[in-house]
Design a protein around this nucleic acid. Structure first.
Lengths: 181, 181
DNA sequence: CGAAATATGTCAACATGGCTGACCTAACTG
DNA sequence: CAGTTAGGTCAGCCATGTTGACATATTTCG
């Protein structure tokens, strides 16, 4: 099993299971599985969105507004990491078609705080339900702490610079949601 | 800290750690982390590609051809799940600029088997190196079996229909690579 | 052998969703 | 009041996905 032709000094532990990770060899499996998993993760939602005349960009906006009602446009731009022109295009359609509404900020009247309508929430929850079913099914095939393991792995893949913001967003949205329910 | 206003009847086991997963509540954290993780996972490579005048689509083609030298066009289409017209556009550029070459199949002369050139391999390995660094760093922050846990989670997210094919692809490419080295 | 199936390539047109650059209004802040 | 900030908008470009139609070479099968 050990590669006897390798210089002894570079001897290396097996990384996981029986897959030996040779020195400097890319971590092919995770790289590729991120592609395959993400590809399949989004397609189901895409199919539903297509029936509404929406695309993936609409989904993202709707998702994050639903998760964080009253969020500012600037916050949404920061999460999506796109330009306000790109956001404007899809946001306008969501507003025009009654999925999202904008309310003037109470303190700062320049702000247009974003909220989903009942219709918007319904679609957002439907899409979240599809993705949840996939994730729940996946986690159910794995061990009892698979959720925590997956969460920690994904957080560690996020840019160090963004990590704090991402975790803060999730925690804040969770907290707000618990209060509402 | 506990939400004392919540109705007692809906009390639910904690799913993982201290995050209570209520009945029918979407698995927000994993859904969102897949978005954030994937977003950050690809941007570094995108930046390098931009300097070469390439995009994410070129990356995928180059990556999979590098991983599976001699693969058929049809196999690549099946992996990427795009149309041959979409593939054709980027493949042509990669061939014209000397990153990929096509060889007539020995058995079936209709086939155009795909190989990376030295130049193509160099770029593919550079990009894989960037992504590997991110993954390796992430895994190093986690426990010793994090690689296996991440792998199993990602495989479980893949469509059941595709799972076998994906695993076969990875195993085949790994095997071929080991033989070459 | 000849017909049909297969592997691949290509043209044209279109949709989505990124981007830059320029410019605008309304409202807040010092 | 001057300058900054939050947000919107117009115009145009680019990358990458789609459909549909069709062409060419090669293999396979009756």
């Amino acid at each position: 099993m050990a590669d006897l032709t390798a210089p002894a000094a570079t001897d290396q532990k097996p990384a996981s299971g029986d897959r030996a990770a040779r020195q400097d060899e890319p971590i092919w499996d995770i790289i590729e599985l991120l592609f395959f998993a993400y590809r399949d993760f989004v397609t189901e939602a895409d199919d539903v969105l297509a029936k509404f005349g929406f695309g993936r960009a609409h989904h993202r906006v709707l998702h994050f507004v639903n998760r964080n009602p009253g969020m500012k446009v600037a916050e949404l731009l920061d999460i999506l990491k796109i330009t306000k022109q790109s956001l404007g295009r899809v946001l306008k359609q969501l507003v025009d078609q009654g999925y999202v509404i904008q309310k003037e900020g109470a303190n700062d009247r320049r702000q247009r705080l974003l909220y989903v309508t009942a219709k918007g929430e319904s679609l957002a929850m439907k899409l979240a339900g599809l993705q949840t079913a996939r994730v729940a099914h996946a986690l159910s095939e794995l061990g009892p702490n698979a959720h925590e393991a997956a969460r920690r792995f994904l957080v560690a893949i996020v840019d160090a610079d963004n990590r704090e913001g991402v975790l803060r967003f999730i925690a804040r949205a969770d907290r707000a949601r618990r209060q509402r329910s």
